[in-house]
Design a protein around this nucleic acid. Structure first.
Length: 419
RNA sequence: GUGGCCAUAGCUCAAUCGGCAGAGCACCUGGUUGUGGCCCAGGAGGUUGCGGGUUCGAGCCCCGCUGGUCACCCCA
C-alpha cells in the first residue's frame, strides 16, 4: 500500500478548520499592514539558494531537495522563501516601485531533515518581507506583524528573542574577538564547537553542550562590538519596542542559521506543545542579500513563521477555531419518481445558494434519516409519493423532532427565512 | 547521519507460560413496508509492518529490513 513519503503528511478534513482560520488570519493581517501577496514558484535554480542562503549553511549542505530536470536544469524545491522573493523583486524591477516594497507569501517549503515533532520535510510557512528601507521602524513593523499574528490567534506563552548580528563592517571584527577568546579555552569546549570555530564561528554561541555553557557566558558579546551605525539601529529599534510596550528578551546567543542576516535577528519561541522544536518564527534584516543576488544594493527585513508549529501550539493550548460552513439540510426520498425530483430539488436549492445534501442510492428512509443525523443537518426534506402528488415536501426539524408540509413552490423562501 | 521507544481490524487497544487472533468505538443491514439520536440483533472488516531463523507449534523468542515516533544536530 502506498503511504505518504517520510516527512510528508496529508492535511485531513479534521484539521481543515485550523488551516482555514490560520490562512484567513494571515491574509487579513497582511492586508491591514499594507503587504501584498507574491507567490514565488515552488522550485528555483539551485544556485539561487546556494548563493542566497549560504554555502556553509545546513540547508545548502545537507537539506535541499535538488534535481535535474529533463532539460538539464539544476533545480531545487524551495527550502525557504526569501531567496525566491528577492529573485522576483529583482526580476520584476521592483526597485522602481514605491519603497518599501512590502510582500508576503504562504505555502509549502521543503527540507530533507529527520522528521520529528513540529518538523516535516514538507512544511508550510508564511513569509513577510519589507524591501528597500533601512529605517529601524521597518524592523519594528515586521516584528509587529509577527506579534499581531500570534495575538490574533490567541497564542500564549510566547517569547520574542532579539539580537543584532552586526554588518560586514563590524561582524568580522567581532568574530575575530570571539575566535581569539575561544582559542584560549580550546581544551574546555566540545568537539562540535571546535568544528564550528572553523566553519561558522558565530554558531558556538548557541551550543547546548553542558561544558560549553560557562565558556559562552564569558564570551565577548556582539552588542559590545557593533559599529556606530549598527549600534544606533539596534538602540532605535529597542526604543520603538519599548514605546509600544512590547516585551522582548535580549539574547546575545541568538544567531541564525542563514548567512544573509545583518543587524536585527529575532525568533519567537513557544513554551509548550512543540517538543524540542519551539521556534515558531524566525527572521531579521538582510541588507546585503539583494546585491549578492545581482540586484542593486537594497536593504530588507522579514520573517518566516511555521504554520504546522503554530497549529500544534494552538492545539496544545486548546485554541478554539471557527467551524467551517456545512450544508444544513439533506434531501431524502422514497420511490423512483421521488428520487428524480429529489435530484432536481437539491440542484435548485444549491443554485439558490442553499447548501444541500442528497441521499444517494435508494435506501430505506430510516437509513437516510441516519445519514441526515450523522451529517448533523438542521432539516431533512422528505420527498415521497404523497408529497409528490401534493406538490409538497415534508420538512423535518431534526433537533425538535417536528415536521410539517411545505409546498415545493415555496420551499426556497421557507428555508431562506430559517437558515 | 546517529541514538531511545514503538509496530495486532479504519481508530484505541487486549491475547495468560510459546498453544483456535479478540473487544470497544466507528461503518453497513435489520428490529420499524415512510422517519434519525437511545437500545437490541446480525454483517463486513486481519498476509499480527516486511523478510528470515528457533520450535511439534510464533502476534509473543532471535536476527535483519522498512516505517512511525521522540531526541541529538539545525531550524519553521
Amino acid at each position: 500500500m502506498y503511504k505518504a513519503v517520510r516527512g510528508t503528511q496529508d492535511i485531513l478534513p479534521q484539521d481543515a478548520p485550523y488551516w482555514r482560520h490560520l490562512e484567513t488570519t494571515i491574509h487579513e493581517l497582511c492586508a491591514r499592514y499594507g503587504y501584498h501577496r507574491l507567490e514565488p514558484p515552488l522550485f528555483e535554480e539551485t544556485s539561487l539558494f546556494v548563493r542566497g542562503v549560504g554555502e556553509a549553511t545546513d540547508i545548502v549542505e545537507k537539506e535541499m531537495y535538488s534535481f535535474t530536470d529533463r532539460g538539464g536544469r539544476e533545480l531545487t524545491l524551495r527550502p525557504e522563501f526569501t531567496a525566491g522573493v528577492m529573485r522576483g523583486y529583482i526580476e520584476h524591477n521592483m526597485h522602481t516601485w514605491p519603497r518599501p516594497v512590502k510582500l508576503y507569501s504562504v505555502g509549502p517549503a521543503f527540507r530533507y531533515e529527520a522528521p520529528q515533532a513540529g518538523r516535516y520535510r514538507q512544511f508550510h510557512q508564511v513569509n513577510v518581507e519589507a524591501i528597500g528601507e533601512q529605517d529601524p521602524a521597518v524592523d519594528l513593523e515586521i516584528m509587529s506583524v509577527a506579534w499581531d499574528l500570534y495575538e490574533a490567534l490567541g497564542s500564549k506563552g510566547l517569547s520574542f528573542q532579539l539580537n543584532s548580528t552586526g554588518c560586514p563592517a563590524c561582524r568580522p571584527v567581532y568574530i575575530k574577538h570571539l575566535v581569539a577568546y575561544y582559542e584560549q579555552h580550546r581544551d574546555e569546549i566540545c568537539k562540535e564547537c571546535k568544528r564550528r570555530l572553523q566553519r561558522n564561528p558565530l554558531r558556538v554561541l548557541d551550543c547546548k553542550v553542558e561544558t560549553c555553557q560557562p565558556i559562552i557566558e564569558g564570551a565577548p558579546r556582539m552588542r559590545e562590538h557593533l559599529c556606530g551605525e549598527c549600534a544606533k539601529h539596534f538602540e532605535t529599534l529597542l526604543g520603538y519596542l519599548d514605546l509600544l510596550g512590547r516585551s522582548y528578551t535580549l539574547n546575545h546567543r541568538l544567531v541564525r542559521g542563514l548567512d544573509y542576516y545583518t543587524k536585527t535577528v529575532f525568533e519567537v519561541w513557544a513554551e509548550e506543545g512543540l517538543g524540542a522544536q519551539n521556534a515558531v518564527c524566525g527572521g531579521g534584516r538582510y541588507d546585503g542579500l539583494i546585491e549578492e543576488l545581482g540586484g542593486p544594493p537594497t536593504p530588507g527585513v522579514g520573517f518566516a513563521a511555521g504554520l504546522e508549529r503554530i497549529i500544534l501550539a494552538m492545539k496544545a493550548q486548546g485554541t478554539a477555531v471557527p467551524e467551517l460552513v456545512a450544508p444544513q439540510l439533506l434531501v431524502a426520498h422514497r420511490g423512483t419518481e421521488a428520487k428524480t425530483r429529489a435530484v432536481t430539488l437539491t440542484s435548485e436549492l444549491r443554485t439558490a445558494g442553499i447548501g444541500a445534501l442528497l441521499a444517494f442510492g435508494q435506501r430505506s428512509l430510516r437509513s437516510q434519516m441516519k445519514q441526515a443525523n450523522r451529517a448533523n443537518v438542521r432539516f431533512t426534506l422528505i420527498l415521497g409519493e404523497d408529497e409528490l402528488a401534493a406538490g409538497e415536501v415534508t420538512v423535518r426539524d431534526m433537533a425538535a423532532g417536528e415536521q410539517q408540509r411545505v409546498s415545493l413552490a415555496e420551499i426556497e423562501d421557507w428555508l431562506k427565512r430559517r437558515l
